[in-house]
């Protein structure tokens, strides 16, 4: 949403009410003045574009080159060792890459779906007229303010096998103590809990902002027609929120696919880059980091980065298509 409506309408809007620009101020139209006026916009935007060009765009393009080499940090001269698509061929048969992809998608689904559903429900609650609403909203946003590192480390203690509060609490209901890091599902659930805790309130506030733009009359009219609360929520709130929902789905998908700090610090072992004893929660970002930082393979690490980017693009595109189809179905 932030993306789709940004440029064209606003740009044309601000063109309309302006007077005929050149010649509107002929009073001091000397040459220096005109030059200043023509060139200064570029001067104003240049700091951003210089920083972005050098530290954003250039590395992005350079990754593509690095991914075609056998560059290793521990081998001199290897940066010129051009190997074509070899790294990508290796990747296709690399079981650890597929494992990382599976883990990333699994943890991504487990964290994104409940998180957004909970956020929707929470936003609905926050949309009532409330006493102390600033306090409640701040309380809900507090987890998002805390850093990934701190949150994960706190939760690792809460998930502790022997003395963790979560096992103690579950034990009250007769659930045996779980070693959360050890299993595939338990570790996925653990990491997803951390992500969900950190982001639900933030997304709820974004939904809330969109909900408050819905005219109250719509609900009144629906209520007069005998629509139940649930029906109003489904037929008014959700359709109005669709662009916002798509926006949050996409941002949280992109975030989930790049997940790094949570699995790294969740492992609480001496080899955190492995993502668990059986790599059961090694995500793509973690695997890429493991290859380039832990094993000095710049070329291969870069290839993993590109593969990751491709996965992100495909999944975001699928999200868009699904959203469009849903819209089509409803219109029909």
């Amino acid at each position: 949403m932030a993306v789709s409506t940004g440029t064209p309408p606003a740009a044309s809007r601000s063109n309309v009410p302006r007077g005929p620009e050149p010649g509107a101020a002929p009073v001091r139209g000397n040459r220096w003045h005109r030059a200043e006026r023509r060139l200064s916009p570029y001067a104003y935007i240049s700091p951003f574009f210089i920083v972005f060009g050098v530290f954003g765009l250039f590395p992005l393009l350079y990754t593509a080159y690095v991914s075609l080499t056998a560059w290793r940090a521990d081998t001199d001269g290897s940066q010129h060792d051009f190997v074509g698509l070899d790294n990508y061929r290796t990747l296709l048969h690399d079981q650890f890459f597929w494992n990382a992809l599976r883990n990333t998608l699994g943890i991504g689904l487990l964290s994104t779906v409940p998180q957004l559903l909970l956020a929707l429900g929470l936003a609905h609650l926050l949309n009532y007229r409330l006493r102390g609403r600033t306090f409640i909203r701040m309380g809900v946003l507090l987890p998002n303010v805390t850093s990934v590192a701190a949150v994960t480390i706190i939760f690792v203690q809460l998930f502790g096998r022997d003395f963790g509060l979560i096992n103690w609490f579950l034990g009250l209901f007769g659930v045996p103590h779980t070693d959360w890091q050890a299993g595939t599902w338990s570790s996925w659930i653990g990491i997803s809990t951390i992500v969900t805790w950190r982001w639900t309130g933030y997304n709820a506030l974004i939904y809330l902002a969109a909900m408050q733009a819905v005219p109250f009359e719509l609900y009144e009219a629906a209520a007069i027609d005998g629509a139940s609360r649930w029906r109003q929520f489904r037929s008014i709130t959700i359709p109005v929120l669709r662009p916002t929902i798509l926006f949050t789905v996409i941002t949280s998908t992109i975030g989930a696919l790049q997940m790094f700090g949570e699995p790294l610090l969740f492992s609480a072992s001496q080899t955190p880059m492995a993502g668990g004893s059986q790599h059961q929660f090694q995500t793509m970002a973690l695997y890429s980091y493991d290859q380039f930082w832990g094993k000095f393979k710049y070329g291969y690490g870069a290839a993993i980065s590109w593969a990751m980017f491709l996965v992100i693009v495909v999944i975001v595109a699928v999200n868009f298509l699904l959203a469009r189809r849903m819209k089509g179905v409803e219109a029909a």
Binding site: A2, G6, L57, P59, L60, Y62, F260, A285, M308
Partner: peptide
């Protein structure tokens, strides 16, 4: 706007 969509991790190795 387009650069907001590009994941930062893509350029991390060259950086």
């Amino acid at each position: 706007v387009a650069t907001m969509m590009v994941p930062t991790q893509l350029g991390i190795i060259p950086l």
